[in-house]
Design a protein around this nucleic acid. Structure first.
Lengths: 201, 201
DNA sequence: AGGCAATCTAGGCAATGACAAGTTTGGCTT
DNA sequence: AAGCCAAACTTGTCATTGCCTAGATTGCCT
């Protein structure tokens, strides 16, 4: 018998337990929210002992903090190649839909270790990307300063994404493509026509 | 001696345990989030046995559902006497700041019993109030239909409120009055001058 | 005064997070 | 190539919690 037949007979070392736990956690959170997360359950899913995850994340808060940091990294990358502020908003909404678990955890500070270095770094990265997108707005476009334009755009995108994920827009938006709807909203905020809309006085 | 000297010698019946538990729960949630909520802890705070709260709320989800329902009721009342859509937005933000615990729970569906009747009723009430405010907008004001205007206003207000509560605007907004800042944002969305801003082409 | 239902207490069970030792293993040094 | 070390993982344990069941107390209504 070939001893090299290293079967699924769970080797002592999982190989990539950290990623496995993260992925499983994202699944759970996307469906049932962060409150439903159980380290022991994640350990079972990964086929390891109940205390194994703690070695990678220290504790529950550590796991959630790692998820948030990953999320801010992904968001920063997504926003990095936005063409303008409106595009950044569209990307923001898309990110929330494609990574609902990350998004939820990123903006629930109570669940995170605020002083975590990785988290702070990733968050700063995302903030920079947002600032860059904001700076592309012509300041005289609306007679307002860029900082407020950024807050407005962020609020609109964040609110839309949040309400969308919470199924609060199922009625009004219905089966329409959310990104397209958001484009219309963004066009309302920044007058620059975004949708071939009706009569412009 | 007046026998009415009802001392703090904990009477068998609390008197208003339901309200006491709700209030304590709101305190905890406002500080540490819904995840930190413990029925046994609330019972201790109220000075009753560990299973007493369950009689009023059935279980943890029941308590949170009651909070959400109460929140939607309060929000509906707040929005009811809004003068216009922008005012409704300002009131929405104010509500979130004055009732952060309610607000947080209301928009975390994973924590709630979706089929609860009281919750559905209160939510419908709030939705009606919002619809009323939206209907006050002149449809031709922006060349867009009222439904989208409502979604835009709601998204902006909800996003701003959410980011505010999560301390994500501490930098940009600083120590400025949040309501005043929001008024400016709303003015950007609905061109009708809210702030003595620049030239209107 | 009697009785009833709501309110609250007491006890118990399974599950969880966190901690403390031990065990196995891959890889690096010598 | 032998040995060793630190990381990865396991096993065991404890306090806490949610929730269930059964029983005690009390206000209220007739």
């Amino acid at each position: 018998m070939p001893p090299a037949k290293k079967p699924a007979a769970r080797p002592y070392h999982h190989g990539d337990l950290r990623r496995a736990v993260l992925t499983a956690a994202l699944d759970v959170i996307a469906v049932d929210g962060p409150a439903a997360l159980s380290l022991r359950d994640l350990a079972r899913r990964a086929g390891v002992s109940h205390a194994a995850p703690a070695h990678h994340f220290k504790d529950r808060t550590g796991l959630l903090t790692a998820i948030a940091a990953e999320g801010f990294g992904l968001l920063a990358a997504t926003l990095a190649d936005a063409s303008d502020l409106k595009d950044a908003g569209v990307r923001y909404v898309r990110f929330a839909r494609e990574h609902p678990a990350h998004f939820q955890v990123m903006f629930t500070p109570q669940l995170l270790r605020a002083d975590d270095l990785e988290l702070a770094t990733a968050r700063a990265l995302a903030a920079d990307a947002l600032r860059t997108a904001v700076s592309a707005v012509r300041p005289d476009d609306l007679g307002i300063d860029a900082r407020l334009a950024g807050v407005a755009a962020w609020s609109l995108a964040h609110g839309f994404a949040t309400l969308l994920l919470g199924h609060n827009l199922d009625g009004p938006v219905g089966d329409k493509d959310p990104e397209e709807v958001f484009r219309t909203l963004a066009a309302m905020l920044f007058r620059t026509g975004g949708k071939p809309d009706g009569p412009r006085s």
